[in-house]
Design a protein around this nucleic acid. Structure first.
Length: 381
RNA sequence: CCACGCUUGGGAGAGAA
């Protein structure tokens, strides 16, 4: 039994869902650990619905299973459900708190993450690293350094989190010093450093680092591809894409966006059609091009397609609101604004509000626009 | 034996420097 459980987890980590399921189904009896292991196989591979089914059919609900479900909701962008799962749990361990912390981070709710961190009954290395990432994404370099210095231990993951913070918001030389001084480095460290050079347009440094990597994985190649694309080197980007043997959706989307930004719409459409799979990001990239061109009907069509294959997020809705606003479609826009909150539980950001104010103002509903301004949870600028 | 953390792709306008 134990051996089978271990096997299931091994399959889960390597993404062999089918094998895990076959093994699970063939077992003569199951322990709670078996159920949990199978549940996390679904969670870690992004199968929310199967995870929910599994969770619903489990003979007993353990703390571990509930925490795994919390992560499943968070991973699929359902922060509200994750929070509800957290609130409804009869008991919580510090892993549960860590999972909720990570959920807030993924949902972009750094304020909530920090609040939870302060109020946690118990913290460990993982809690601190999660917070470090939250601070990194907010660009709060000093605070991140502070948290890092206060940690009584650090592993390669926490060092990487700190490095990421520096390479994206600090100076590159400083980052390089940190990179060279790290007690251990893994592939992720190299990629984090590479991203720093790439984002800040230091293509030569990026290429040099890329060539000196002990191993180059697809993430590294994609980073180089993006480096070329973002710095207007479309030819180099294409060459890099061709060099990549089997690109994933990130490689494809990077190439897609490079062409969209260049106004190579035919090329872009051909790339979109040739992509092996589409997800929320590739659809939104395409939507962005049409929305910016003011193509209302096509944008709405793309948005409907998006809804069918994936859960639209805040970025996606912003673009639809934008195109409605430009086309003067006030009531359509209101509908989307409403649906965003009610159907998807997405909090409106400042950007959504200002887009809506624009929409209502242009449509002549100045009263409604004023009402919206006073009702929003931000200080009007 | 099972749950949690690090790296790559998508998000308008206006104002201000």
């Amino acid at each position: 039994l134990i051996a089978s459980n271990i096997m299931i987890s091994a399959y889960a980590r390597s993404g062999h869902l089918e094998e895990a399921k076959a093994l699970f189904d063939g077992m003569p009896l199951w322990s709670t650990v078996s159920w949990n292991a199978m549940l996390t196989t679904y969670v870690q591979n992004g199968y929310l619905e199967k995870a929910e089914l599994m969770f619903g059919s489990m003979p007993e609900l353990s703390l571990l299973a509930c925490t795994a479900m919390l992560s499943a909701f968070a991973a699929s962008g359902h922060l509200l459900q994750a929070k509800r799962a957290f609130d409804d749990m009869p008991e919580r361990s510090f892993v549960t708190y860590n999972a909720m912390l990570a959920a807030f981070l993924k949902g972009g709710r750094n304020d909530q993450a920090m609040k939870l961190y302060e109020s946690m009954p118990e913290r460990n290395l993982i809690s601190a690293t999660t917070v470090l990432s939250a601070l990194a994404s907010a660009g709060l370099l000093e605070k991140a350094r502070e948290v890092f210095n206060e940690m009584e231990e650090a592993d390669v993951v926490s060092w990487n989190a700190l490095l990421t913070c520096y390479s994206q918001h600090g100076g590159l030389e400083e980052s390089r010093v940190l990179f060279d001084a790290m007690p251990q480095r893994n592939l992720i460290s190299w990629n984090a450093m590479l991203t720093g050079y790439a984002r800040q347009g230091h293509l030569d440094n990026a290429k040099q680092l890329f060539d000196s990597m002990p191993v180059q994985d697809l993430v590294a190649s994609n980073t180089m591809l993006a480096a070329y694309a973002e710095n207007g080197e479309l030819e180099q980007a294409k060459a890099m894409f061709d060099e990549i043997q089997s690109g994933d959706k990130v490689s494809w989307t990077t190439l897609l966006v490079a062409n969209l930004n260049r106004g190579e719409l035919e090329q872009a459409n051909a790339i979109f059609d040739a992509m092996p799979e589409h997800d929320i990001v590739s659809w939104t990239a395409l939507l962005g091009a049409y929305a910016n061109a003011g193509r209302l009907n096509q944008s709405i069509q793309i948005f409907s397609m998006t809804k069918m294959i994936d859960t639209p997020d805040a970025a996606c809705f912003l673009l639809v609101l934008l195109v409605c606003s430009h086309a003067g479609k006030a009531s359509t826009g209101r509908g989307y604004f409403f649906s965003m909150r009610v159907d998807y539980g997405i909090r409106s950001t400042k950007e959504h509000f200002s887009c809506m104010v624009d929409l209502l103002g242009r449509g002549g509903s100045l009263g409604d626009a004023g009402e919206l301004i006073t009702s929003m949870p931000y200080v009007p600028e």
